[in-house]
Amino acid sequence: MNSWEMMIHAKLASMAEEGLQRELRPIKDASQPILMYQGKELVNFSSNNYLGLAGHPQIIAAQQRSAEQGAGATASRLIIGHDEEMEELEEELASFHQHEAALVLANGYMANVGILSSFLGRHDAVFSDRLNHASIVDGIRLSRATHFRYRHGDLNHLEELLKKAKTRGIKRQLIVTDSVFSMDGDIAPLRDIVFLKQKYGTALLIDEAHAGGVFGKHGEGLAHELQISEQVDLHMGTFSKAYGVYGAYVLARKEWIQYLHHTCRSFIYTTALPPTVIGGIRQAIQLVKEGMNLRIDLSKKSQYFRDELVKAGFDIGGSTTQIIPVCIGDENTTLTFSRKLIERGIMSVAIRPPTVPKGTARLRFSLMANHQWENIQSALVAIKEIGKELEVI
């Protein structure tokens, strides 16, 4: 066994012992409320298909029509250009969110990495919530900017760090935050962050990946619901969650988007999305705009699920959204809980480090608008019984 094999073997053995091992599961109907795993039907609480649009017949039909333009884009947009449907999509996105311009990218990870490494450099400062998504962390690392991490949702700490950067004479500064935190289900204090942004003259990037489609009168996101969208300099979102498709976008002033055309490496050096995806996105936007009843259903089901867990004595952190963690702490207990749920016909994945900080392992339940009430209620019964069995409650 050479040194590489020894390192890999030792690392995998250590992760297994600590309850941190992971596995890829072959799943059928993975985005639907009921999925198939190892020949067994499970109620699915692990998908981000919040409005239940993945697999919508209108989206599939739109994708089939667009597929007639070709199977793939074959090159970067700066090399081959783009078709008229892409042009129309970006204009539609800008209009929908009331921003000057939009840029479509391959996915949320590539969007955040590209945006942050484009706008920030080694002489700049960035202020990031400690629980921001890994794509934000990696984008900051690539940028080589001075990184100030503020305690989760702690505005006093954020302001302390803003003052510290000011005393150092750092001219260009940017605050970045998720709007809905993907592993905690709580929301960022966006109005107060906007206040600090204006007070200290920083720029602001908001990641709306888990809020787009869910919040706002027409699903524009949390910034629109809070009526602060105009104060957001860079507004990132994805189509892979509530929209049920794939891809990501960034909204900003026209000149800022033009700057990304010239500097964003994850845009410049990546093949464009294929026509079938673009067609699906455009149809999904229409369904999201018309999806008020879906948002109401999702809100009601999420509220009920949260209330029942709290009554039973579970720790759901600060969740106020469709993402509901059951915080357990111990990694092995969390894994056991997840396995017992599968035995009872429920899919909820154990979330462990490094996805969440050490000692904060949890089950993550994601509600969908098209979950049936009887499935939600039967899942709650199982969760409570297993929680007592494992002495979590």
Rank of each mutant, 00 (worst) to 15 (best):
S3Y: 04
A10N: 12
S14L: 08
Q21E: 15
I27E: 10
S31Y: 13
P33E: 10
I34D: 03
K40C: 08
K40V: 12
S46N: 12
Q63N: 08
Q69G: 03
T74V: 13
I79L: 06
L103G: 11
L105H: 01
N107S: 12
Y109A: 10
M110H: 04
I115P: 00
F119M: 04
F119N: 01
G139Q: 05
S143A: 14
F148W: 11
K164F: 04
K166C: 02
I170Y: 02
Q173S: 08
D178Y: 03
S182W: 00
S182P: 05
V194F: 01
L196F: 04
K199C: 01
T202P: 07
L205I: 02
I206W: 01
H218R: 14
G219P: 10
L222F: 04
L222Y: 03
A223R: 04
E230L: 07
M236D: 08
M236G: 03
G247A: 14
Y249Q: 13
F267Y: 11
V277E: 05
G279C: 10
V288D: 08
I296N: 07
E308I: 01
V310N: 01
I316T: 11
T321G: 03
Q322E: 08
I324A: 05
V326Q: 03
D330W: 00
N332A: 11
R344Q: 12
R364M: 14
A369I: 08
H371G: 06
G387W: 02
